[in-house]
């Protein structure tokens, strides 16, 4: 039984690595399709033909495709994404600079979204069949159907420009630069700048856990043991919170792991609206500015995070739900 889980996890890990390798390969060929010259960023009156050739050689663009591919894979394994065309500096450095900002924004928003979602889901389930439930569902669907940037801009107009309660862009006030991540996280200024983007993102993200929690609750409440509990005289409140909510939480936990991965990829929009210096904004400006090594690196990191979290979600599920381990053992994964 326990061995089954470990075999399952090992197999799943190999699969994740395979998936990553395929994504890496797709990424390589995708970026070889890029239009424009990688030298676009270099153009000035001053460039001679030889200098251009030297640059092409410097970035290894003159070598045959398969050599470029192997070099690329080799470098990737060592965590080397090459130099950014635009910043003339290692891509890894650029990404490590902004990755924390993306993680803070994503994790905080998800945390808030899942708290609201779980509580809201239980609440709606307890009001099943009422207009409150219907209204709650419609509101939640509205938050998921409205374009994020549109909501973000309207919130900006209200809270930043009309009421002037909150700052509108970046992670810090004029003149403030954080020397370390700890200093950043302990600064009130930083959290003030976090508020608006976090709220906008959480507004969008809370729908999934809320609807999930609600339907899980309804399902659990339908089980025989709940009916038995009712007959045995347990209070509705006890059954709701202690029994049903607990059992309905499992899928939410795994959904959370998946959610982190997906929202990191989807943060592109929010980061652009609020000028948040994160991975998504870096990716967009790298693509728009033909900085292919940087765009490729940012893309790859997002993909790694997603694959990793998908893996964790599966493992978590298999550990929490014993049926998975045994069934996979039976099928000899």
């Amino acid at each position: 039984m326990r061995r089954g889980i470990w075999i399952y996890i090992g197999g799943r890990l190999l699969q994740s690595l395979l998936v990553l390798w395929i994504i890496t390969t797709i990424l390589f060929f995708l970026f070889r399709q890029a239009p424009g010259s990688p030298l676009a960023a270099y153009i000035d009156t001053t460039f001679t033909e030889e200098q251009q050739q030297a640059l092409i050689a410097r970035f290894g663009l003159d070598k045959p495709m398969h050599i470029q591919y192997l070099t690329y894979l080799g470098n990737l394994i060592q965590g080397d994404f090459g130099d950014s065309f635009r910043y003339r500096a290692p891509v890894t450095e650029q990404i490590m600079d902004v990755l924390p900002n993306t993680l803070y924004l994503t994790l905080t928003s998800l945390f808030i979204a899942y708290i609201i979602g779980v509580v809201g889901g239980v609440f709606l389930a307890s009001r099943r069949g009422t207009t409150v439930e219907k209204g709650g569902i419609i509101f939640t669907l509205m938050t998921r159907a409205a374009p994020q940037f549109w909501v973000g801009m309207i919130l900006l107009a209200i809270f930043a420009f009309e009421l002037r309660w909150l700052p509108s862009s970046g992670t810090s006030s004029p003149g403030v630069i954080y020397r370390s991540e700890i200093q950043k996280l302990t600064s009130i200024d930083f959290w003030e700048h976090m508020l608006l983007p976090t709220f906008t993102l959480a507004l969008f993200l809370h729908g999934l856990p809320l609807l999930l929690m609600r339907s899980n609750m309804l399902e659990v409440l339908d089980q025989d043991y709940i009916t038995m509990g009712r007959l045995a005289g347990y209070s509705e409140r006890f059954l709701m919170l202690r029994v049903a909510a607990r059992n309905a939480l499992l899928p939410i936990v795994t959904a959370l792991a998946l959610g982190i991965g997906y929202s990191i990829g989807g943060n592109v929009i929010i980061e652009n609206v609020f000028a948040w210096p994160g991975l998504g904004r870096m990716l967009v400006s790298a693509v728009a500015g033909s900085d292919y090594p940087l765009a490729q690196g940012a893309f790859f990191i997002i993909a790694v995070i997603i694959v990793l979290l998908n893996f964790l979600a599966d493992v978590l599920y298999s550990v929490l739900d014993p049926r998975v381990g045994s069934s996979s053992q039976a099928q000899g994964v």
């Binding site: 509108s168 652009n272 000028a275």
Partner: peptide, 23 residues
């Protein structure tokens, strides 16, 4: 006394900030 150049890609934010005095 000094000069701060802030990266603000969103033009609406720039307009809002000059009114609030952020820039």
């Amino acid at each position: 006394d000094g000069l701060v150049l802030r990266i603000i890609p969103n033009a609406e934010s720039q307009l809002g900030q000059i009114q609030t005095g952020e820039i």
